[in-house]
Design a protein around this nucleic acid. Structure first.
Lengths: 214, 214
DNA sequence: GCCTGTGAAGCTATTCACAGCT
DNA sequence: AGCTGTGAATAGCTTCACAGGC
């Protein structure tokens, strides 16, 4: 049984929390402790961990170090994966600086923009290329992932170019649904939609449901 | 039966697509057309619309104008809602400029930051206050929603201050789960988690599932 | 006692399938 | 024929509940 999208999201979150726990000197955690920090039930945590080939002991819970290793082995590729950024506007630059604070296994190594004023410069240590260079640069660097931060009107065209260049995963901030062929994974971060959702549920005074994989 | 979080998200998306359709001169749409644009099935679209008190005719589908009115009535508050931005870093400013391009019913009217170099200035037309002024400003302006773009370490404290000031909905970009009392809705936009998810599923060449309410 | 691991139950969301209309 | 509206079925996710271990 393959892990669900939500499970993967939670594992990523657990890892972050476990790193904090490790830094604070904790060697073991119980599922209910991890759950409390993650906003999930103990049950859910145990279920998620089950898929890793578990490692808990009833007396002390899970060993933090072991869990971290397992999650890393499970989530991360064996080598560093390179990421392309398409769209070097305000949002693109903000995301660039966000991710450039050391993400060990995911690194943005190339940026692209259609604006000639932005191309052929280095932003936050990353070279910004013209859109025409997308395919050669992506292929040459072996990039398989992309973050898309272009206006809605340019999103589909950019996505097509990324797919043509061999990218198989896109994190899109463009407020437009992308059409991509089967086998390409798209995660949509739709800011406008999310804010409207917050506005709607805030009016009803409903609390957010337990967190999942987005 | 209250509408689910995912349904609300999709309605927000449908609205955007319907506006485009209206601008392109379409007066009617079929559920399968809207579904194709939204990345959802016709069935799903009809289900979502059902909750609005529907309005479709078998011969011509749904009247675009009517649907738009219904969705607006359903999703939007009767008056413009004010939003606070907490954290005026790169990401905060990017989001500010993103939302300031006319969102009719949601408007960021105040910003807050703990850095004295940023306070008492106007950024993108929005006044930036010190954190100490959060409660009075929020109360005075009747703000009920907030966008949180502070570092993880400052997130919980900021969230507590927002809740104390009477906010009932938070769109959080902080890479840390927030603890809030019941009745406060939190939507998490966890960039790091989302990118890891993309990386994981891109490796397996799995396509994203049909879009939902995040 | 309180923990983990997990089958089974319960919920929620989506899709099926078809009656009814034009 | 092709569409909408909707009960019924299915699929997917979460929680319950309890056996087994410390």
């Amino acid at each position: 049984m393959p892990p669900s999208e939500r499970t993967i999201g939670r594992l990523s979150l657990y890892r972050r929390l476990l790193k904090q726990a490790a830094a604070a000197g904790h060697e073991h955690v119980y599922s209910h402790e991890l759950g409390a920090r993650a906003g999930a039930t103990a049950c859910q945590v145990r279920r998620d961990i089950m898929g890793l080939g578990c490692a808990g002991s009833p007396s002390r819970g899970y060993k933090v170090k072991t869990l971290l290793d397992r999650i890393e082995f499970y989530l991360d590729a064996p080598v560093v994966e390179r990421v392309a950024l398409v769209g070097v506007g305000n949002l693109g630059r903000a995301i660039l600086s966000f991710f450039q604070r050391r993400r060990p296994k995911l690194e943005i190594t190339a940026a692209f923009d259609s604006d000639p004023w932005k191309t052929n410069r280095v932003v936050q240590g990353v070279r910004c290329h013209a859109m025409a260079e997308l395919e050669p640069v992506v292929r040459e660097q072996g990039i398989r992932l992309a973050v898309l931060t272009v206006p809605a009107a340019a999103a589909q065209e950019a996505a097509d170019a990324l797919v043509a260049a061999g990218i198989t995963g896109i994190l899109s901030f463009a407020p437009a649904p992308l059409r991509v062929p089967l086998g390409v994974f798209v995660e949509d971060m739709d800011l406008a939609m999310s804010l409207e959702k917050v506005a709607y549920f805030a009016r009803r005074h409903v609390r957010a449901p337990r967190r999942g994989g987005k």
